[in-house]
Design a protein around this nucleic acid. Sequence first.
DNA 1: CTTGCATAAGCGCATATGCACGCTTTAGAC
DNA 2: GTCTAAAGCGTGCATATGCGCTTATGCAAG
Lengths: 142, 142
Amino acid sequence: MADPPSPAVLCHCNAIRRGARQVTQFYDRHLAPAGLRTSQYSMLVGLARLGPIAIAAFADAMAMDRTTMGRALKPLERDGLLAVGPGPDGRTRALHLTEAGRRRIAEAEPLWRVAQAGFEARYGATAAADLRTALARVVRTV
Amino acid sequence: MADPPSPAVLCHCNAIRRGARQVTQFYDRHLAPAGLRTSQYSMLVGLARLGPIAIAAFADAMAMDRTTMGRALKPLERDGLLAVGPGPDGRTRALHLTEAGRRRIAEAEPLWRVAQAGFEARYGATAAADLRTALARVVRTV
DNA sequence: CTTGCATAAGCGCATATGCACGCTTTAGAC
DNA sequence: GTCTAAAGCGTGCATATGCGCTTATGCAAG
């Protein structure tokens, strides 16, 4: 009987945080040769897709906090992978990928594919797809 | 046709990181009145369960990096919620919960329950349990 | 006893995360 | 035209995350 007071084992938040740490490390190790973290790779890819875009809009599209995004861009801008120019609006700043950024994506993409395939091989491709779907629903739900 | 170069939408790592951010914010908002983050609450609960334990062993049990754990303990130690004493070994340090720590857990537990119930209400209790199982498998897999 | 290896922990560095607050600029009300 | 509300960003603070390096200790082989 004696239910433990707060079974952290049952905490959905704890569970997803643990998983995120593990998977992040897995992908990061694969992407390391390209000098990118997974988060950075996904930002570059996102920027390539969403073209010139304002910071807040980009953060929203990536389901990130605005200020987190603002700061996360710094290292990428410093390394010349993206540039921040004036937006159409005096208060808006426009993010756009540079040529170096595009090259870096091309360099990292095969590494990402290996990571993605490796995860699916271990976890099961179908299960992984289901997990991804479930996680997408989390973002829409919360 | 034209498969996008690296569909970040399909990246399992990105998906789980997004989800973790959202869920963390959700739980953190609920726990805020107790002056605890979700991660801190889970560490306190884990420590209560695993009794006096060394840092590395505790980090391992929580699926955290050793150095991350070491630093994450600082604020809790500063606030007197846990204490770090000498271990059985000259190089080991023993973590143990204080009375204040136990009181804080008692204070935070109802808030955690509301967060947990709230998440299950939105996401679906069964789906949430399935997600948690899938995530636990991620930790074992990677 | 020493030498060498393994274990436990800390620290520097860099990035990730988000809240509260403040500043500038724009759009709309009047 | 002015005044106000809202939008877009930046900064300070605090915590979270993990890698590489270093130090201190324990343990076993010789």
